[in-house]
Design a protein around this nucleic acid. Structure first.
Lengths: 203, 203
DNA sequence: TCGTACTTGAGCTCACATTCACAAACCGGC
DNA sequence: GCCGGTTTGTGAATGTGAGCTCAAGTACGA
């Protein structure tokens, strides 16, 4: 294996591989790049090349050891250890996120939730008690460095600012707005309506 | 202007432009690629190139007419007319989507909702009555050709199959699973947890 | 009418990403 | 130990997109 920086597009695909492999690990022990390619609809040499970026460990004639592969990808994505995340905004979307079961397979634990509505504060959703948004600053002490923003559009930027001040390093933003943050803080935005807006083009 | 197929990446950016321009249209009449670039954090020549794919209509020295631009982008994305969409799965996430206000700015109207839980059928969320999932086949008659899947993972593929059979042409899939569909049907998947899984890498 | 400031549209180059193609590595059976 | 069937890992070829640059077009004031 040679030294390479891992291309962005590869990083984007790693979670896809991981998802597929976690599913397959129940059924099989080894898999060839060809079979995996069919399963997740990616070109097989693409897969081999991606894997080669973080060390080759496939066996010619046999394929890749699925469990080993899962460990490696998790390590690459820094998912070997469990991560705590905070949710800000316990409205419809926020509540749905709190109840969403899918985070666990990647080792995420939504350990805190915040809102500014006094009626919601103190209530519990999925064993997480909703705290006043002014308590955001406790995040650093609680070692929570990831956050999910699910507040209305107009509050998104100030929420992000508060999170940055609280030492958060990564933000998953659901508001339909480009959030600005220091570049040491990584922001990923999911604008649900915008994704839907792409759909009619292809019809 | 020359004939070009529009690159995928451009199609992906068009909704971003649209979102920004809709916001700006309240304040200004014209905008230069430079100013728009600052506003939405995209390179300015990128913007000009993207716009040139669907006909040049900027004025040197002045910039682009915002309203005209909005019309053109909507036309390109096939958003000039309002689209009806159906939601399948009225659980936590589905209910949040039904209540989500952001679809309107792109002209989307969630006109129907389905679930298989008898307790939910008949209830109303945001003026949409939840119907039995067996009524999916009425979609064609009701001229609904877009659908949003928000059902549990194990039901996602069969839901997609039923939607395809009901004549749906585009699917926004929220389940953490690659859905297969005939290639005339466009599927866009948003896997919330998978997006979050990319975050720790950058920290 | 002319000059200045600004902006577009497009050619060009470089960087990046995808796919092909094949030698080398491995397995299992005989 | 050898052979046929697989599959990996990687260099080379191709495809795609991003960003720089600049001639040409426009507005506006002197």
């Amino acid at each position: 294996m040679k030294y390479h920086r891992i291309p962005d597009e590869t990083v984007r695909r790693l979670p896809v591989y991981l998802r597929g492999l976690l599913f397959l690990s129940d059924h099989k022990q080894n898999i060839s790049s060809r079979n995996l390619a069919d399963f997740i609809s990616v070109n097989d040499s693409q897969i081999r090349k991606d894997f080669s970026y973080f060390g080759a460990f496939g066996t010619p004639g046999v394929g890749y050891d699925i469990r080993k592969l899962i460990r490696q990808i998790k390590k690459m994505l820094n998912l070997s250890v469990s991560h705590k995340a905070a949710l800000v905004g316990a409205g419809n979307l926020g509540s749905a996120i709190l109840a969403y079961p899918g985070f666990r397979m990647y080792g995420f634990d939504i350990a805190a939730a915040f809102d500014n509505d006094p009626k919601k504060i103190g209530r519990e959703i999925n064993n997480v008690r909703i705290e006043d948004i002014s308590s955001l600053r406790t995040l650093e002490r609680r070692k929570i460095s990831l956050a999910i923003i699910a507040v209305p559009r107009d509050a998104a930027q100030q929420t992000a600012d508060a999170l940055v001040k609280a030492g958060v390093k990564g933000i998953l933003n659901f508001s339909p707005l480009r959030i600005t943050a220091p570049k040491k803080v990584k922001v990923i935005t999911i604008d649900i309506a915008m994704e839907l807006a792409r759909l009619p083009y292809y019809i």
